[in-house]
Simulated assay, not measured.
Amino acid sequence: MTNKLTQQQLALAYKNACMAELQALKPGNVHAFADGHGMTIQDFIQSAEVTAEPITRPGFSVGERVFYSVEATKNAVGQNTNLGMLLLCAPLIHTAFNLQAGQALWNQLDITLRQLTVDDAALVARAIVLANPGGLGTSDQHDVHEAPQISLLEMMCSAQDKDRISWQYANAFQDVVSFGVNLYADALLKWENVAWATTALYLGFLTNYADTHVQRKHGIEVAKSLMQEAKEIESSYWATNNPKLMQKQLLVWDTSLKARKINPGTSADLTVATLLASNLVLVT
Rank of each mutant, 00 (worst) to 15 (best):
T6K: 05
V30G: 13
A122R: 14
K217R: 09
H31Q: 10
L270C: 01
P58H: 07
M227T: 07
I220K: 10
A185S: 15
D110A: 13
A24S: 15
V181A: 15
S69C: 06
K224R: 12
A277M: 11
V144P: 06
A210E: 05
V30Y: 07
L152G: 14
G265F: 00
E229R: 14
T81H: 06
L245N: 10
P58L: 08
F205D: 00
L99C: 11
G180D: 05
A121L: 04
L10N: 02
E53V: 13
N3A: 14
F205C: 02
L257R: 05
Q115P: 01
L10P: 00
Q103L: 08
A20K: 12
P264A: 06
Y202H: 12
F33G: 13
V272R: 05
G84T: 03
D186R: 13
Y68D: 11
A104I: 05
S47E: 02
T56F: 02
T284L: 07
N279S: 08
L22C: 09
P243Q: 11
H218A: 04
A210V: 01
I220F: 06
N182M: 13
L153W: 03
D163T: 06
V222K: 15
T212C: 01
W238M: 10
A34N: 09
Q8F: 02
L87C: 14
N82M: 06
T95S: 12
E221T: 11
E154R: 05
L116D: 00
L105D: 08
F173P: 07
T81P: 05
Y209M: 01
K231S: 15
L189I: 02
V222L: 13
Y184H: 14
M156W: 04
A90M: 08
V124D: 04
K4P: 12
S47A: 12
L226D: 03
D110W: 02
L226S: 04
I220E: 12
K4D: 05
D163R: 06
E221G: 06
F179P: 00
R57W: 03
Q46P: 02
I111V: 14
A52Q: 13
I55F: 06
